[in-house]
Design a protein around this nucleic acid. Structure first.
Length: 467
RNA sequence: GCUCCCUUCGUCUAGUGGCCCAGGACACCGCCCUCUCAAGGCGGGAACACGAGUUCGAGUCUCGUAGGGAGCGCCA
């Protein structure tokens, strides 16, 4: 039997880090075991579900490259199915109609809280066997076993046992006719033949009652794996109010999807001392049973480090289009400068994100917008600057073919001509070309500027030397 | 209040009774390299929450304590 996993977000917002990791683990588990990965949209909360959120979630998964094999399925399209299953349950005596108002239920809970007992439904209809009647408050409740216990083996948390006495008769169909989460998931997971339920550990508490519903439906129980949460950098729970952002924000912030995936796969899971995983390695090595039990914090610095590792090791030609995208975000035209793959090579040791890389490349795609006064004072207003720049201009003007090696030789020759070390030429030249005293190696900086731009900027800089 | 879950360097983690006076990675500090900044190389400080017990031997097993988290909805 092939295994099947599913990712089942509710479309009430964007795909955030926690959801992305859940999706990744579901996807990896399916790929690793040669199974199938299905996407299901849990949109029974009509108040909060939106089409934009569905699009945002799918966009996020596409960006990360987490392709599903089936779906997306929409719960709102399966209403008839849920109603039929609920009716069958009522007919079989495994569920019943109840008619309490929300106010009555609130009062019941408040009273139980006061008495220090677990809050649970203790209404009158469980044993009432009342015939169906029309009432705006009519719901269907599941008749949970009153005695015994539910035991399951979570692939991550281990053995978990729950007393049925702790569980109450949950509503499975609301007064508006819509199914509730705990009911719809079970019906869906059965119908979609899900063999492994991988989800956040905020659902462990729901699992025993869901298992009871599986039993009532005479379906076989899938395996469960409850993932620990991802906390914010401060150890607080991530929420929309507190630090949770869309995975697409990471694209905008200059991260590579593979880097995010690699970061996420290592957050709560590991394989010895290995830090870098190709997609193939993730698939080969990942096993949901190896996931850690405890929550972990999101660390932007480690993500940034990983991102740079990929910036350094990925094919520059593959990164180039992404850099171009970020250049355009800055209002720069990639056509007005050197080949972006060359820029990637020059800057990948100096930038952790594509946003940083794009910012640092602006000097090759447009005019110098800001002069660092300290740099000018230190490297242009010195006795040797004018001679160094003049010599550089002279040699660079006649470089036969404008490539990195020839540019390097020309600058070396200029230094030799004035009898100074490289630094005496490189620094003034760097300030002339960038307006600052920080840039990639001088030959790279000059090469990427191109001959015309380089000579122009040296001429401009000469006027600043005071010579 | 009740139920369930979790606890190794600041952070992510290795560790499944002796290989651990605890290893790797990020971050931090120092040195080297060097045309700047990085990157890289080398080195450094830094943790088994606490207490009992089991055992010849415990980070690893058991119990308790403390701390943290989740759930207790006609939300998912």
């Amino acid at each position: 039997m092939t295994i099947r996993t599913r990712f089942a977000p509710s479309p009430t917002g964007f795909l955030h880090i926690g959801g992305a990791r859940t999706a990744l683990y579901c996807w990896l588990e399916a790929r690793h075991r040669g199974g199938e990965f299905v996407l299901r949209i849990e949109d029974t909360d009509r108040e909060r579900s939106t089409d934009e959120a569905v699009k945002a979630i799918i966009e996020g998964m596409n960006w990360l490259g987490l392709a599903h094999d089936e779906g997306p399925f929409y719960q709102t399209l399966r209403m008839d199915r849920y109603r039929k299953v609920a009716d069958d349950l009522v007919r079989a005596g495994k569920a019943y109609y109840a008619y309490e108002t929300k106010e009555e239920l609130d009062a019941m809970r408040a009273q139980q809280m006061e008495q220090g007992v677990k809050t649970r439904y203790a209404g009158a209809y469980r044993d009432d066997n009342a015939p169906l009647r029309d009432d705006p408050n009519r719901v269907v409740r599941f008749r949970n076993p009153a005695t015994g216990s539910v035991v399951f083996h979570d692939k991550i948390k281990g053995r978990i046992e729950w007393n049925n006495a702790e569980l109450d008769d949950l509503v499975i169909v609301r007064s508006d006719g819509y199914p509730t989460y705990n009911f719809a998931v079970v019906v869906d997971d059965i119908d979609m033949r899900i063999s492994e339920v991988i989800r956040g550990d905020d659902h462990v508490n729901n699992t025993p009652r869901q298992i009871n519903i599986y039993h009532a439906l005479e379906a076989s129980i899938p395996e469960f794996a409850h993932l620990p949460m991802i906390l914010g950098p401060d150890g607080q729970k991530l929420s929309k109010r507190h630090g949770a952002v869309s995975v697409m924000q990471y694209r905008d912030d200059g991260f590579l999807p593979h880097a995010l995936l690699n970061y996420l796969v290592r957050l709560g899971w590991s394989h010895g001392d290995q830090e870098i995983f190709s997609r193939e390695e993730m698939i080969e090595l990942f096993d949901v049973a190896d996931v850690n039990k405890s929550a972990s914090r999101f660390d932007l610095e480690k993500l940034s480090w990983l991102n740079q590792q990929y910036l350094k090791s990925d094919d520059p030609e593959a990164i180039a289009p992404q850099l171009e995208w970020h250049l355009r975000q800055l209002g720069l035209d990639p056509a007005q400068g050197p080949a972006c793959a060359d820029v990637v090579i020059a800057l990948r040791d100096r930038a952790q994100t594509l946003v940083e890389m794009a910012a640092k490349s602006s000097i090759w795609f447009g005019p110098i917008t800001q002069w660092d006064d300290a740099a000018v004072a230190k490297h242009l207003r010195v006795p040797t600057a004018a001679a160094a720049l003049t010599a550089a201009h002279e040699h660079l003007a006649v470089v036969p073919e404008w490539n990195l090696e020839n540019v390097h030789e020309a600058i070396k020759a200029a230094a030799a001509e004035i009898g100074e070390k490289m630094g005496k030429v490189a620094q003034p030249l760097r300030v002339a070309l960038t307006g600052t005293q920080v840039s990639p190696s001088i030959d790279q900086t000059v090469f990427l500027a191109g001959r015309t731009r380089t000579l122009e900027r040296i001429e401009t800089a000469l006027t600043k030397t005071g010579a």
